[in-house]
Amino acid sequence: MNKILSILKKREATLSIIILLLGIFVSIRVPSFFTYENICNVLKSYSVVGIFSLGVLLVIIGGGFDVSFSAIAQVSQYLVVWLLLKHIHGNLFIAFILAIAIGTLMGLFNGFLIDHYKMPAIIITISTQNLFYGILYVVSKGKLLYEVPSYIWPLSNTKIFAAAAENGSIYGLSTVTVLWFALSVLFAFILHKSVIGRSVYLVGGNALAAQRVGINVRKTILFVYGLSGAIAGVASIAHVSIIQTVIPNSIVGTEMSVIAAVVLGGASITGGKGSVLGTFLGVLLFAILSNSLTLLRISSYWYNVFTGAIILLSIAVNALQELAQARRKIRVKVD
């Protein structure tokens, strides 16, 4: 019984129950909600947010904060497509390599500034977000790239476990969704089964203590922000495969949804805490919530209200949990 209660106290269990209850409620109101076609469409529409969330989770666990990932993705996307159209005869693999390289360099720039100047990460990343995005808009003059290399399209158009609708259209699990799932498994392995993953948790929990036990804090910070930038690069290619157009301001502005999903999944803003499963469930809840509002014909403005409320509630719950843990530690020391 105690084991069951301890499981139910975990954020992942709470989110699973909320997702189940919300799904049942919407299915009763709108039977088309719980269909294979709608589920596939919902997962595809939130695959980019899901990929972004992995990078943000890594940064938050490491004790940092990042709002520049959207600008990194925007720059990577525009620059890669432009290079592939004008100067490089490539393929999907080369597109990913270029995007990852560009994203990693910008992420490392963030990590260097944060480590070198010892300033709050949120201040640095707000600054670099405006820097990256501003340079892109000045250089591109806001020009859209309507043409996208055709070899990028299959990333979102190819369907796995495909089925045919009554009107003859094909639906199924998009490969961009499979990419999100695969990266989630990879990140779970990195965070829980590798030395660098455990180092990220230790640095996020207490950087000074981590340094005393021999962990290179500087290298860990650079790793966190570099990998976060690389993930932003991957997400940029996933995004362009879905919309099949490059718009200089189409990604910037998604920061709140991504951060909210990560925090809702149990990641602590103070660092050292979070899980890939919790983040996945957080993204899934937001995806279902967005789809539910559409199906129930409720104004999309309510989505922003729910997002802000969920962030505040999640932060409050995390704060209460940390206070409870601190009190238990005090009691143990007194005893």
Rank of each mutant, 00 (worst) to 15 (best):
Q244K: 12
V81A: 01
L136W: 06
T175Q: 10
R198I: 02
G172S: 09
L5Q: 09
N110T: 13
D66Q: 04
I330T: 00
N291D: 13
N216S: 07
K10C: 05
T270M: 09
I51Y: 02
V203C: 06
L136P: 10
G197I: 02
F109D: 07
L54A: 09
G62C: 05
L131G: 06
I251E: 00
K193Y: 11
R11V: 12
A182R: 13
E322F: 06
E255K: 06
R212V: 01
S140K: 15
Y225N: 04
V258M: 01
L227A: 06
F306G: 00
V56G: 00
K143F: 10
A326T: 01
N216L: 04
T158E: 08
G205K: 03
A162H: 04
S300M: 11
Q211H: 13
I315W: 03
S290W: 01
A182M: 04
D115M: 11
L179D: 14
V262S: 02
A230N: 05
P154M: 07
S194N: 12
S236N: 02
V252N: 00
V139A: 06
S140G: 12
F96D: 08
Y171M: 10
G103L: 06
S228F: 04
I269K: 03
Y151M: 09
K273R: 13
F280W: 09
A287S: 07
I100R: 01
V217S: 02
Q211W: 09
S292F: 00
L191H: 05
S76F: 06
R198H: 14
Y137G: 15
L79S: 08
N38C: 08
K118L: 06
K143D: 14
R11N: 12
S70K: 08
I269E: 03
N318Q: 08
A319Q: 10
Y225C: 03
I135R: 12
P120N: 04
N206S: 10
N91M: 10
Y117Q: 15
V30R: 09
A188L: 09
G229E: 02
G107M: 05
V240A: 04
S241K: 02
K159G: 04
Y201M: 08
Y117A: 11
A163L: 06
I4E: 07
V200H: 14
G266M: 01
G265L: 00
Q74R: 04
A210R: 05
A165S: 11
Y171P: 07
